[in-house]
């Protein structure tokens, strides 16, 4: 399969997800089940994508674990996204120096 086809499909689906409600819907969703599902789905997606993939993200379990611990601690204290993301990387880099 050509990469261009994948990219076209990704982009189209992602655009339609944003465009349809933004353009067409004027009323609020009433179903409690759907509203609850929509509230939880982002966290469920990100959790499933992160665990356990994050531990393979640097090619070394120890450096990845170091970065993960730093990210969890900083995120726990509500630091901005970008600080948490870069600190995780810095932590993994520093851990790599000791290996």
């Amino acid at each position: 399969m050509s990469t261009a086809v994948y990219i076209f499909v990704m982009a189209s689906v992602t655009y339609l997800i944003r465009m349809i409600p933004f353009t067409l819907f004027k009323k609020k969703i009433k179903s409690q089940f759907i509203r609850s599902f929509l509230k939880y789905i982002p966290y469920a997606v990100l959790s499933a994508m992160t665990i356990p993939a994050i531990f393979y993200s640097t090619g070394n379990f120890v450096t990845a674990a170091a970065g993960t611990i730093i990210a969890v601690v900083l995120a726990f204290f509500d630091l901005p996204l970008i600080v948490v993301a870069l600190a995780a990387s810095l932590g993994a880099f520093i851990a790599g120096l000791f290996l």
Partner: peptide, 14 residues
Amino acid sequence: SALGIVLYGMFLAI
């Protein structure tokens, strides 16, 4: 390789 964790760090921050 250390930068490979950036995106996941952002996910954790969310």
